[in-house]
């Protein structure tokens, strides 16, 4: 097989793309390409990965202009005329090269109260959850998020509005709104109904378009809009 001319982002926000020539292989992923450069050309190349099998959500990067999980993206699918461009995720500060600072992303999870708040202790019996209830089905449809921040990087509203909590945090909040074991819904609904919350979403649906796990955060956010609006009309939210 031939070679790929790989443009890799080097440096911080004021950095630039540099081209490396990488041998193309069968079943080669974009993460394999980055690793090849780091091990064979420049060991100072910074990037992030862990599981390599699409579970940990660490290796997301911008590939040919769109955010992707690089460990599950084959080069055969994305190389165009022998060229490939790999950059850091958008909408996040660049630490170095392909590694972004994910603190704003996870701080917004906290701000959305997208954290499970159980009402039982280990001394209580395990609660039985019926998998067929409407609430559980809604939670299950949104639960497989791997925190990769692809949706956050793809979101126009995140780019325009620094206060916007983003699709991943709101999607997680929606799973908890539908979790009968959770006890923090009044506070959670208040958090997602404030400025920068679910009502800032324009429903462009880039999140569901790019989500590697085929989740639909736009639908989750629409659910939050309905729930918060009902709570507001009942006088439960200011």
């Amino acid at each position: 097989m031939g070679e790929i001319a790989v443009s890799l982002w080097r440096g911080k926000a004021d950095g630039s793309y540099q081209v490396y020539r990488v041998p193309q292989r069968d079943n080669q992923t974009v993460l394999d390409v980055v690793t090849w450069v780091q091990r064979n050309v420049d060991p100072t190349l910074a990037y992030r990965f862990a599981c390599r099998v699409g579970m940990c959500g660490s290796c997301a990067m911008t590939v040919n202009g769109r955010p992707r999980w690089t460990c599950r993206t084959h080069t055969a699918k994305v190389v165009k005329n022998g060229n490939l461009e790999i950059g850091p995720l958008a909408n996040l500060p660049i630490i170095k090269d392909l590694a972004c600072d994910l603190r704003p992303f996870f701080e917004k999870w906290q701000k959305a109260r997208a954290v499970f708040s159980p009402g039982l202790t280990r001394k209580d019996a395990i609660e039985r959850i019926m998998p067929t209830t409407a609430a559980r089905l809604a939670a299950d449809a949104a639960i497989e998020c791997i925190n990769c921040a692809v949706c956050y990087a793809a979101c126009d509203t995140v780019r325009w509005n620094a206060d916007y909590l983003g699709p991943a945090a709101l999607n997680r909040a929606w799973t908890l709104v539908n979790d009968v074991r959770d006890t923090a819904n009044p506070q959670r609904l208040a958090a997602v109904a404030a400025a920068g919350g679910c009502h800032a979403c324009h429903s462009h649906q880039s999140c569901q378009q790019h989500c590697p796990n085929a989740l639909n955060p736009t639908a989750s956010i629409a659910g939050l809009k309905r729930h918060t609006m009902q709570a507001y009309l009942k006088g439960e939210l200011e």
Binding site: A195, G197, M229
Partner: peptide, 11 residues
């Protein structure tokens, strides 16, 4: 936009 403005704008 918060929920109050959202409801007002949709209504």
């Amino acid at each position: 936009m918060n929920v109050r403005l959202y409801v007002l704008q949709r209504a």
